[in-house]
Amino acid sequence: MAKAKGYPEALETKLRDRALHADDSNPQFTKTVEEISRTIPHMCFQCGTCTSSCPSAPRSSYRIRKFVRRVVLGLENEALTDPDLWLCTTCYSCTDRCPRDIAPTDTIMAMRNLAFKRDIIPINFLKTVQAIYKSGHGVPNNDVNRAARVKLGLTADPPTTHMYPEYIKGIQKIIDHYKLKENADRIIKEAEG
């Protein structure tokens, strides 16, 4: 009888040790996230108000409550390598409703910063960086928009860097200061070859 495909690897994966061990946790991670986010995730009592407020949660596997839990337990690798980290829309509904007055959104932002320091970031975020560097906009104006704006009696381009491209330089200076563009270019190159 032929072995099932992927056997016994599938079984081993299934039966691997999932328990939380003391050395999985990095207490410094909790402190760092609190410092960057300037909020108090350690006060979370896991009521789920955040996840239940989240527009992303019903349509994805993103669970803000789980991320806050990981911060509390110092599960740095688990938090930073989970692609769900990038599914927060930063709508701040959770922050509005959290009964313990935590700002869960800000902890997500802190973790995204920490992840980026380790080159963990989806390519589309980096492309946004490139777009902002080039045009001052994450989502630059396009012909469809221009037409719509004119139809509404607005200028074709909004009064931003689109209308005043001379200010793009300033934006680039800020981005360069943080080496954001440089890193974005590098990571994209490494990923796409």
């Binding site: 896991q46 009521c47 789920g48 108000t49 955040c50 996840t51 239940s52 407020s53 989240c54 949660a57 019903p58 669970r63 409550r65 789980k66 509904s93 409703r97 009964p99």
Partner: peptide
């Protein structure tokens, strides 16, 4: 096991939709 984040009303039936996170199931309800 989950705290209710918000409640919405259907203006016609006056029924209410309750939003919470079933934290034990890890699924929003």
């Amino acid at each position: 096991r989950g705290r209710v984040s918000h409640i919405l009303e259907n203006p016609e039936t006056k029924n209410l939709t309750v939003f919470a996170d079933d934290t034990l199931l890890d699924r929003p309800v």
